[in-house]
Amino acid sequence: MYSKKSFRKPMIIISTLFVSLMLILPLLSVIVNSLSKGWEFYVKSISTTNVMSAIRLTLFVTLITVGVNTVFGLAAAWLLTRYSFKGKQVLATLIDIPFSISPVIAGLAFIMMFGRMGWAAPIVDAVNSITGWNIKIVFAIPGVVLATIFVTFPFVSREIIPVLNSVGTDEEEAAALMGAGGFKIFKKITFPHIRWALAYGVVLCTARAIGEFGAVNALSKTRGKTFTLPLEIDALYMAGSADSIVEAYAASSVLVIFAVILLIARNVLEYKTNHVNSLLKEKNVKD
């Protein structure tokens, strides 16, 4: 038997050191800094009106983003794995655009579209004057939502596509030939296969939506109104006084708690996906 015993120890030590120094230490550092002025100061700083409004807006934006991405992710994954058509590869590449674009550019894109000199600004104005609404996109909540959708766009579809590819289309074709409609096929056959991958995609999307900073920073300027939690943290940190920096860490600790919960959810889901896949295999063998 060929073994690599002598490399085992140094490799584990290097990996442990890297993870401790680069990943665990920053987490601990946020918590320690946030509590450096005592528990009361901590509670006070995360319950200011600005922070509370930022938390509410962050959750609201995340909810809409996850909804939109789930609809898109399911449709796109179904389209890209169930049919073959011309331009499929191009479409798949276009969906991945947000992965390789700086979030700041995402923010800029919506400013160039809906901003003062954007070509779509007259359209929004026209809609407003006809309907009597007062819709604002840039530097308002719709802009924050659009920017967050942009940066998280491929997250759900990307998790579902590999699962649908590996499951194959046999069962769905059989169901279709026996007369089942599209939604029935999806509910009874496709969904059970992809539910953990979908949940995993939703977790990733949530994490990014909660934490998005660059894209939102370009599109949101009013503290206490259109600021998400990362923007509020930035404002507190940039205020620069010793107190406000500790307040920034306190607000950050809320996001750290979210991050840890999402990380645990991710690991549970990964376990579930593997578990379900192995059960499926067993079942197929028995059948």
């Binding site: 800094n33 994490a207 934490g211 900073f213 923007l231 940190y237 920034a248 950050s252 750290v256």
Partner: peptide, 11 residues
């Protein structure tokens, strides 16, 4: 991926 970039940045 899970930790917001701004939090990572200030820390």
């Amino acid at each position: 991926f899970a930790l917001p970039t701004a939090v990572a940045g200030i820390t």
